[in-house]
């Protein structure tokens, strides 16, 4: 485990949690800003070549060696049904701690266009996502948050990535 991750894990439950405010790391996907709970972020690294896994859907890019552990890498654009893009110099992999449906914790990486900011977001800033009908998938969206003039889409990563472990989310992405 990286030192950053340990430092991050030591931090939760502090005063900000009591005030209902949490920190979120945001990143960009097709120009929109998405956020994940920063306590789930283990590290951020550049894109590197993966080893593909047979029999997995396209958004599973394969696995990498993260200091001796085998970590699957998932393209978040493709997972959310957006068109894939070529990976460039700003493309990063955010390594996350994911709680699976089977109660086990897994480490997974998600490929995003670029990392953006770290925001303190109070619980009051969260709005439930509106319904779009069947065309737009919002079941991975935990809330929409307002930061100044901008909107941040806060993701439910357990829901989004926990299914990968079961193989169930496979065909639906």
């Amino acid at each position: 485990m990286s030192e950053t991750a340990q430092a991050l894990e030591a931090g939760p439950g502090g005063p900000e949690a009591a005030a209902g405010t949490r920190q979120y790391l945001t990143f960009l996907l097709a120009g929109e800003e998405y956020g994940v709970d920063i306590l789930r972020v283990k590290e951020i690294r550049g894109w590197e070549r993966t080893t593909p896994i047979p029999g997995t859907p396209g958004h599973v890019k394969g696995v990498i060696n993260l200091r001796g552990t085998i970590v699957p890498i998932i393209d978040l654009r493709e997972r959310l049904g957006m068109p894939a893009v070529e990976y460039g110099p700003t493309t990063v992999v955010i390594v996350l701690c994911v709680g699976g449906a089977d109660g086990r914790e897994r480490v997974m990486g998600v490929v995003v266009d670029a990392v953006s900011e770290v925001y303190d977001l109070p619980e009051e800033a969260m709005r439930p996502p509106p319904e779009f009908g069947a065309e737009v998938r919002v079941d991975f969206v935990r809330a929409l948050a307002t930061v100044g003039e901008k909107m941040v889409i806060v993701l439910d990563i357990d829901r989004m990535l926990g299914m990968e472990a079961l193989g169930a989310g496979a065909g639906t992405g």
């Binding site: 896994i53 047979p54 552990t69 085998i70 699957p72 990968e164 193989g167």
Partner: peptide, 14 residues
């Protein structure tokens, strides 16, 4: 040998 299942799932043939 490293587990694929630890962070992912069982894959047929692997």
């Amino acid at each position: 040998i490293k587990s694929l299942e630890a962070n992912f799932r069982r894959v047929e043939g692997v």
